[in-house]
Simulated assay, not measured.
Amino acid sequence: MPTDRTQDRKVVNMTQFASSARFQPIKEVEAYWQAIRAGRLVPRRSDIDPRGIERALEFAFVAERIATGLGRLRIAGSHLTDLLGMEVRGMPLTAFFATNSRPVITDTLEQVFADPALAEITLTGERGIGKPALDGRMILLPLKSDLGDISRVLGCLVTSGSVGRAPRRFEITDTRVTPLLGDARLPDPVTQDPAPRVPSGLAEAPATFDPGPRPYLRVVRREDAE
Score class of each variant (00 low, 15 high):
Val220Phe: 11
Gln192Ala: 12
Arg222Phe: 10
Arg168Gln: 06
Val198Asn: 03
Ile172Asp: 01
Phe59Lys: 01
Gly52Ala: 03
Ala114Tyr: 07
Ala31Arg: 14
Arg169Leu: 04
Val11Met: 10
Pro199Gly: 01
Ser200Asp: 07
Arg45Pro: 00
Asp174Thr: 05
Leu147Ala: 15
Gly52Ser: 09
Gly130Trp: 03
Leu41Arg: 13
Val158Trp: 09
Leu140Val: 11
Arg169Gln: 15
Pro196Thr: 09
Val219Phe: 14
Gln34Asn: 13
Val104Lys: 10
Gly69Trp: 05
Met91Lys: 08
Ala60Asp: 03
Leu134Trp: 06
Arg185Trp: 02
Arg55Val: 13
Trp33Pro: 06
Ala38His: 05
Met1Ile: 12
Arg55Ile: 08
Arg22Pro: 00
Pro199Trp: 01
Pro25Gln: 08
Gly90Val: 01
Val163Leu: 11
Ala184His: 15
Arg72His: 01
Val29Pro: 09
Glu110Leu: 03
Val219Pro: 00
Leu134Thr: 04
Ser46His: 08
Ile121Gln: 06
Leu154Tyr: 01
Ala35Gln: 09
Glu58Tyr: 00
Ser46Met: 12
Thr175Ile: 13
Val198Gln: 13
His79Gln: 14
Gly130Lys: 07
Gly201Gln: 11
Gly69Val: 09
Ile121Met: 09
Ile150Trp: 05
Leu157Asp: 09
Pro50Thr: 07
Lys144Cys: 09
Pro25Thr: 10
Met138Thr: 05
Met14Phe: 15
